[in-house]
C-alpha cells in the first residue's frame, strides 16, 4: 500500500481529528525497566507518592533560603523581583488579594516539588533532598503553617493541610 493509499484508508483529515494510523505505526519504543524509569521519575503527588528519603526543619532552611533564594524572593519570601511566597497581608476575597504559599497553594507537596525540581533558578536541581525539605519547612514556617522545629519528611509533608486546600473548583476536568 502506498503512503497515499494508507493515509486515505486511515481517514487522514487535515486540520481536523487526528487520523487513526495506529495500524501503520512502526513501534519503535524501547522498553525500559522500572529501575531505569526511577532515574527519570521525580513527580511528587499530593498524597506523598514520589517523595524521597530525607528531612529538614525551618531552622535549617532559613540559612539556605537567605543564601540561595532571598536575592529574588526577598527576605522572608517577600519584596523581591520573583513571586511572593509568604507574608500575605490581605485575604483572597478582599479588594487586593495576596496570593502566597500560605494563602493560595493547595498542597504542601507542591512546595517541595517546585523547590527540588526548579530552584534556585541560577542552579536548578542543585539542592539535596535534605536541603529541599529544609527550604520547604522554612517556607511553611514563614507562612505560619508549621512550627520552626517541625521536621518535614516524606511522611509528615503530605499530612500538612494547607489553608486553601479546598478553595478550587475544577472547570474542564473531573
Amino acid at each position: 500500500m502506498s503512503m497515499r493509499d494508507a493515509l486515505l484508508a486511515a481517514g487522514f483529515v487535515f486540520g481536523g481529528a487526528v487520523c487513526a494510523l495506529s495500524a501503520e505505526a512502526p513501534k519503535l519504543g524501547i522498553p525500559i525497566s522500572p529501575a531505569d524509569v526511577a532515574a527519570w521519575d521525580i513527580s511528587v503527588f499530593p498524597d506523598g507518592r514520589g517523595l524521597p528519603p530525607g528531612n529538614g526543619t525551618a531552622r535549617q532552611g532559613r540559612a539556605l533560603f537567605d543564601a540561595q533564594c532571598a536575592r529574588c524572593h526577598g527576605a522572608g519570601g517577600r519584596g523581591g523581583t520573583a513571586e511572593e511566597l509568604a507574608g500575605s497581608t490581605s485575604p483572597l476575597n478582599g479588594p487586593d488579594p495576596d496570593k502566597t504559599i500560605g494563602t493560595y497553594w493547595p498542597y504542601a507537596t507542591t512546595v517541595f516539588d517546585m523547590t527540588r525540581r526548579s530552584m534556585p533558578m541560577h542552579a536548578p536541581g542543585s539542592l539535596s533532598n535534605d536541603e529541599a525539605y529544609a527550604v520547604t519547612a522554612y517556607l511553611l514556617f514563614a507562612n505560619k503553617i508549621i512550627a520552626e522545629d517541625f521536621e518535614i519528611n516524606r511522611e509528615s509533608l503530605p499530612l500538612v493541610k494547607m489553608p486553601n486546600r479546598d478553595g478550587f473548583d475544577r472547570i474542564d476536568a473531573p
Binding site: 486553601n164 478553595g167 478550587f168 473548583d169 475544577r170 472547570i171 474542564d172 476536568a173
Partner: peptide, 8 residues
C-alpha cells in the same frame, strides 16, 4: 475567594 482550576 474561590478559584477556577484546570481551565484548559
Amino acid at each position: 475567594g474561590r478559584s477556577r482550576m484546570f481551565t484548559f
